[in-house]
Design a binder for these strands. Sequence first.
DNA 1: TTTATTTCTTAACACAGGTCAAGTACTTCA
DNA 2: TGAAGTACTTGACCTGTGTTAAGAAATAAA
Lengths: 195, 195
Amino acid sequence: MTTPEENKLIYYVKKWVNITKDDESAILSAFEQATIRKKKDLLVPGEICKYNYFIVKGCMRTYYIDDKGVEHIYHLRFDNNWIGDLESFFSQKPSKYYIEALEDTQYIRISKDRLDQLYDEVPAFDRYFRILFQKAYVNTLKRLNANMWEPAIDRYNDMLKEHPDMFQRVPLTYIASYLGITPESLSRIRKKNNR
Amino acid sequence: MTTPEENKLIYYVKKWVNITKDDESAILSAFEQATIRKKKDLLVPGEICKYNYFIVKGCMRTYYIDDKGVEHIYHLRFDNNWIGDLESFFSQKPSKYYIEALEDTQYIRISKDRLDQLYDEVPAFDRYFRILFQKAYVNTLKRLNANMWEPAIDRYNDMLKEHPDMFQRVPLTYIASYLGITPESLSRIRKKNNR
DNA sequence: TTTATTTCTTAACACAGGTCAAGTACTTCA
DNA sequence: TGAAGTACTTGACCTGTGTTAAGAAATAAA
């Protein structure tokens, strides 16, 4: 009863851990499929993040709004990536974030209880997430490093080089926020680059 | 044959996962004990980070030196915490970082091969690290958020409040670098605070 | 189409934090 | 105890990025 959508997850799990046919079906049966339309929210502040989401096809962002009403973007995620507010998901306490679809998006999701159950049923899935978090942690440290000690122009150029696809799918305002600067600053940087 | 040093690790593992007596001894036998003197390096750039370290008692920092010769501190870690260059550890490629003892420090360590072996022997240890990385990831996102969108004075005051102990054990220069500012700026912030 | 809305750019000005340089106070160790 | 090194502070000046405000360009809606 597996669909191509869910099989994409299996493909990515298998990149990192060995799983049996039984494991596969246990994993697949734990997820639900769904879609969300562009500009709709998967999560809003105050709500508990009840699911962890795997984007099959589409694009989403996580952001929050500060005291002054300014949006700050934490994540921009595309096809074959996980998204969610892990803090709220694991603690099951209210979130501070919005998760919004930037395109019509197809995803699969798993609830906290079902995930905990799955960790027990399929130890390899525990390992898969260990590896996933390990990589996410290292990547976030790199991003922290860049934000603390590299000028914005370098961060922008690195992004251009490593994620050129993003610029096709996401407005520059969002990329600016993700890089930790204002749209005006990004504009100046781009001007400087074209010379 | 367990020593009090290794039992501290077991105590912390048990906070997060259930392990049997057999698991305990499997874990303990995978670690080696050692000590390092103040100002000595556990790792220097170019070297592969062959071990992951658990600090039993003491204090260490991870830092790198940029093109201009300026030190940038990534981590300050104390008793009952893990330290290492995960990127180098997992890839077994040369590190860019120094790991230095800031006090005479007692630690236990585990090699990559031994850890991989242990993950197979004791699935609960896989889970323990999954939970550890999950928390480390969320914490690093918070630190990223603060560095991108909170002024240095707030970051300093948060640190004062949440880790007052650090100020007893680590020079302000290091705390400044960890916060992403210069010692001069930290000095001005402290002056402003005393009014 | 035309209109409305969103995205992007530009300019003038402000400010946090960096840089450079000097001086003071605190540690460490002979 | 004194000398040398390290840690911390202060001041003058500089720079990158934020802020505010306006307009141009692109996109979506009617």
